[in-house]
Design a protein around this nucleic acid. Structure first.
Lengths: 245, 245
DNA sequence: GTATATTTGTTCGTATGTATT
DNA sequence: AAATACATACGAACAAATATA
């Protein structure tokens, strides 16, 4: 007999479904006593599967660095904190997570000059099909990829944003070089999706992993939008903190 | 030869990895022309898999209601909008999504009186181990489950919050009955996780699905926290909109 | 209208991976 | 460790519906 909630034919192997469930419970400290998971036989009974299957799940979690099994003792969780990424009027990447990690780094993956799509044009208050500069970047925290972004800027207003980013490795600093001393986050839209193939490659994720996708508009102090961007975070490495200042 | 980014032996069937990728591309309108997906044979060539495998992926997306295949014509995407859930100082469930759906409904799943854990106590500014009322609720939009919440209230201050919710089906109305005419969202923390077994059951999700998890604190107009809650949204049905008013 | 190409739908068989006993 | 059952993936062919020249 099989637990009702474990689905076969779902395209997700049973051991992986158990791994996902345990990862969740570890994150919320359910069924974890003294940093120790229940024994393999206990888990096998609970999920109504063979012990082999539980071992496959624990093996996967061990590879992710979440748990550690010690012969004769049991399976223990290894403490790992998510990086808290604050989102508010004054959202900035490096400042926001700066006190939680040692190093942050931004790399330019790609730069292109495109025609503004209707969506981008309406976000930036420019006429459709006017030129925009598109920056694809990858951000690391402590040499672990955290997020990848695609940002659009009005090409007329910020012709040198690309080189400015490349030399500084930071959007905020690049905007400063382009004459924007300060800016504000106008809106943020958040969704969660399964990782695409590009995500698994750039963010070093495994298939089935989750990305938090944000769409944001930043504007200058006069309220004119200057940047439209979508950012894809490795969901298991961050939590987004909304600040209602 | 196999595409590098499609991982075998990962515990996720290839057809499901392709389904995840296509779901993403449909959401961002990549590789969709005139509402039509590329043919099965071209997709099979692109992913370097057999056409059967592509068909399994499309079949899964059809079951989710995302695409529709018509013999001789092709596979078409069915328009479906996510419900936008605004998060700001004045976040309220029914008000926020009221103009996007016909009906909203809240049901009480469970009520219990517990000792406050350290986390809950510090969130509600009460002494640890004092009594709190715990409400587990399920919210529908147009008879489709959208989110499930667990909320904690100080039992001393809101002894009747449970019955008030049960009669009104709304936290806002229940708080009104308990003497809170108005309240503000103080903080919101957002994470994304794989659906747990309880999620798949209550929110009618399939294994491997995603939930957006928010932790929020609401406070009265004097700034005293009155409600601490965690909400789990079916990620494919909502997008969270952050308002920096 | 007819022939042809395109596209989805179906049925065999075979090999490999997954889960249980 | 080995045997068994089931799920997943591939390959080749053919049928049925539609589109196009």
């Amino acid at each position: 007999m099989i637990s009702k909630t474990l689905e076969r034919r779902s395209g997700i192997a049973i051991w992986r479904q158990i791994a996902d469930e345990l990862r969740n419970e570890i994150a919320t400290n359910v069924s974890v006593q003294n940093n120790r998971l229940p024994s393999e036989t206990t888990l096998a009974k609970r999920f109504e599967v063979n012990r082999h299957t539980v071992r496959a799940a624990l093996n996967a979690l061990a590879k992710e660095g979440i748990v550690e099994s010690r012969q004769g003792q049991g399976t223990f969780v290894r403490a790992r904190k998510r990086i808290s990424y604050p989102i508010g009027k004054r959202t900035r990447f490096s400042d926001g997570i700066g006190n939680q990690v040692q190093t942050t780094r931004g790399r330019l993956l790609n730069l292109s000059i495109d025609q503004a799509t209707p969506e981008i044009a309406s976000a930036l208050y420019i006429t459709p099909s006017s030129k925009v500069i598109c920056l694809k970047t990858l951000s690391d925290a402590d040499d672990m990829p955290l997020s990848r972004s695609t940002s659009w800027f009005c090409a007329k207003r910020f012709p040198d944003i690309g080189t400015a980013y490349q030399t500084t490795g930071s959007i905020t600093k690049a905007l400063t070089q382009c004459g924007i001393a300060d800016y504000l986050r106008q809106s943020t839209e958040i969704e969660a999706h399964h990782a695409t193939m590009a995500d698994t490659e750039y963010l070093q994720l495994s298939p089935g992993a989750i990305v938090l996708v944000t769409q944001a508009i930043n504007s200058d102090m006069e309220g004119n939008p200057i940047q439209f961007s979508t950012t894809r975070f490795a969901a298991d490495r961050v939590s987004l903190a909304i600040i209602n200042a």
